[in-house]
Amino acid sequence: MTASSVSREASNYDEVSMQQSLLFSDSLKDLKNLRTQLYSAAEYFELSYTDDDQKQIVVETLKDYAIKALVNTVDHLGSVTYKVNDLLDEKVDEVSGTEFRVSCIEQRLRTCREYIDHEGLTQQSLMINTPKYHKRYILPVGETMHGALRTKSKYLGCSLDDEDDWNQFRDAVRATITETPTSSVRKGRSPSPSPRHPQRSATFSFTSTVPKKQLEKRTVSPLRFPLLRSGSVSSRSTTPTSSRPTTPSSAAAARRRYPSEPRKSASMRIQAETENSKDIEQYPSKSKRLLKALLSRRKSKKDDMLYTYLDEY
């Protein structure tokens, strides 16, 4: 259907164009013949004017003929010029369409050339496409935290030993667990002879992070669990926790200044742990009365639960 309609339209277009061209050629032929006709008419009227007696009639006929000839010439010239203009405009439109097509082809060729150049560059540049994985920490069971901590410490620029990091992390977790509600319980448990500097730093860091209610409780019982706090302090000084982003940098700076300090603190912590275990062993015999007094003052169900939890821990 479409092909037949297209062929019909094409045939109609051809017929119309043929008719227009025929009319144009006829009008051009008439214009060419008009000159000879005018010359022959002029000769005829000249002879008739000289020979005939009724000159007035000849003159009137000549006038009429001149007017008609002029009008015919104007009509012919008008039609011919209109057709010529139409033909020229049509050709200009065709040329513009052809220019558009050629520019489209050039653009396609340019695109193909750019693509070929790009492909050649990628082939010749010897670029190794390294696989880019999504930033994600996959922590399998076992040494995952170890590895994660290592990566984290590497990322933060710390150069601590893995075992040391792991111990410090564990101590920090213990300290954060025992920080909030079990302070009163721990107070009576750890009367260890730890150095004073860590105690002060421990109390300072504790007051900077703990809410006011617990702060009041802390002020009631000062410096009674130095061993655990010293451990937590050492862990805090080296653990790169996310909640305190300035700690690893300070630890790293301190490590830069005193390279042997983490080892020292670790050994101190180990000593303190051993002393703590010893104290725990000697605890029922030495400070039973003190513990009883404390428990009688601040004993509650919550404290009991936490106390049992800490014992298990």
Binding site: L88, K91, V92, V95, S96, T98, E99, V102
Partner: peptide, 9 residues
Amino acid sequence: SLNEKLDTL
């Protein structure tokens, strides 16, 4: 102008 366009084309 048409001749110029045709030449360019």
